[in-house]
Design a protein around this nucleic acid. Structure first.
Length: 214
DNA sequence: CTATGATCATCC
DNA sequence: GGATGATCATAG
């Protein structure tokens, strides 16, 4: 499916509650024993768009990537990102070999649709589709900043080793442990910091020459 | 077992 | 309360 078509379909979902849809698609939110399927909202959106669940590392729609992130209400009444956003696994061999432009990280950030859903509490009794954003990394300042994060991570792998990577690194994109933890986590993934998630949902600045807002 | 979908839990 | 590490369900 092309991104434009998916965007239309998703915009029709704004304001709707995802929870009944999970039931309709017979997706697990909580197992009978009470543990949770953390990816339930993402699965609902994928099913809604007609995508079968799979675990391929390529962008899920071929040329563009779909994500859903929870937003929470602040005391001031604004909806803001609740969490960082997992992007893709970090393969040290690939990162050392490939420049940013050829990386999985870049492919996943190049063109995407990100759906914000409301998060109330862990019972997930309701979750409304809040906002749908298209995002293209482009070739501007943000592109250069994220490429810098990638290069930083790359250098640290070279100088100190893959296992030295921690979530402290990176301004917009961080390398965090993911997968089996314990004494010595062996795997890392790229995560978008909440600041980057905010930028993805920020209204584009429209410059009006002569308006004084330039 | 490791990837996907992600959020939870703990530490500061 | 934010940042970092750990973890859950499911598919291949």
């Amino acid at each position: 499916m092309e991104r434009e078509q998916a965007l239309e379909r998703l915009n029709a979902l704004v304001g709707k509650d995802l929870r009944p849809l999970a039931a309709q698609y017979t997706l697990t939110v909580f197992t009978p024993s009470g543990s949770r399927n953390k990816g339930w909202a993402g699965h609902v959106i994928e099913r809604y768009l007609g995508l079968p669940l799979n675990s391929s590392r390529a962008p899920n729609f071929g040329s563009w990537e779909l994500k859903v992130v929870p937003f929470k209400l602040t005391h001031a009444g604004a909806l803001v990102p609740k969490e960082t956003m997992a992007i893709t696994m970090l393969d040290p061999v690939e990162v050392i070999q490939k420049p940013f432009e050829e990386s999985h990280l870049y492919m996943k950030l190049k063109k995407q649709i990100v759906v914000a859903r409301t998060w109330v509490d862990q019972s997930e009794s309701v979750s409304l589709v809040h906002k749908v954003a298209t995002f293209d990394l482009g070739d501007g300042e943000l592109y250069r900043a994220i490429k810098q994060d990638y290069e930083l991570i790359r250098e640290q792998i070279k100088t100190s080793g893959f296992l030295s990577l921690s979530g402290k690194l990176g301004r917009y994109v961080q390398p965090r442990t993911k997968g089996p933890g314990g004494n010595a986590p062996r795997t890392r993934a790229f995560y978008a910091r909440t600041q980057l998630v905010s930028l993805i949902f920020a209204e584009p600045v429209i410059e009006v020459p002569g308006s004084g807002i330039e």
